[in-house]
């Protein structure tokens, strides 16, 4: 009798666990504004916020669709760029799509004395990229535009992948040299 009860409890717990697992698995790719906010705070110098334009894309055409977001104010340009790229690299809000593959991330951002912004991407962006020339070109310029149109001190963008200058993002578009917003 006791054993049967225990057995039922275990089964119920297993079912509940599985249900929770699938619910979380399904919502995992959804936008989690709170966790993005917490990540942004790591690069902030206080609580006040400033607006930024994030270059997501339209759901029906290839055109960029600017998403009006806010980042925390910071004295360091690099930290402002890091916050903006955190938003660009997170799942897009409803009504927008992104050219950046899911799970991609920025390793580091730094500026040189000539105003060139170095963006060091994690190598997973190359492995996870599923698109061709158009998609790859848009992905590159989503990053370049998000940086250059929000941070006028930046005079050009150079890409690194896993700390090294890369010739291409995922095999279709050349990303060596200095890139500037269209």
């Amino acid at each position: 009798m006791m054993n049967k009860k225990l057995f039922l409890i275990i089964i119920a717990l297993l079912v509940a666990g599985l249900a929770l697992f699938f619910v979380f698995k399904k919502t995992a790719v959804k936008r989690d504004a709170k966790s993005v906010d917490r990540a942004l705070m790591l690069y902030s110098d206080g609580d006040s916020r400033v607006p930024v334009d994030i270059y997501f894309a339209d759901t029906e055409t290839e055109k960029f669709l600017v998403y009006k977001a806010e980042i925390f104010e910071t004295k360091r340009v690099e930290n402002g760029i890091k916050q903006s790229l955190l938003i660009l690299f997170s799942p897009p809000p409803q009504g927008y799509v992104t050219y950046i593959p899911e799970g991609s991330s920025v390793r580091e951002v730094f500026m040189d004395p000539n105003g060139i912004c170095y963006v060091d991407l994690h190598g997973s962006i190359t492995a996870n990229f599923k698109g061709g020339t158009s998609a790859e070109s848009h992905a590159v310029y989503a990053i370049v535009d998000t940086i250059m149109k929000n941070f006028p001190k930046v005079n050009g963008v150079r890409f690194l992948i896993d700390g090294k200058e890369a010739e291409t993002l995922a095999g279709h578009i050349k990303i060596d040299g200095i890139l500037r917003a269209d």
Binding site: A57, D58, E60, T61, E62, V97, G131, G132, T133, S134
Partner: peptide, 8 residues
Amino acid sequence: DNLPQEKI
């Protein structure tokens, strides 16, 4: 190509 926009 593979674009994220299914309608294109």
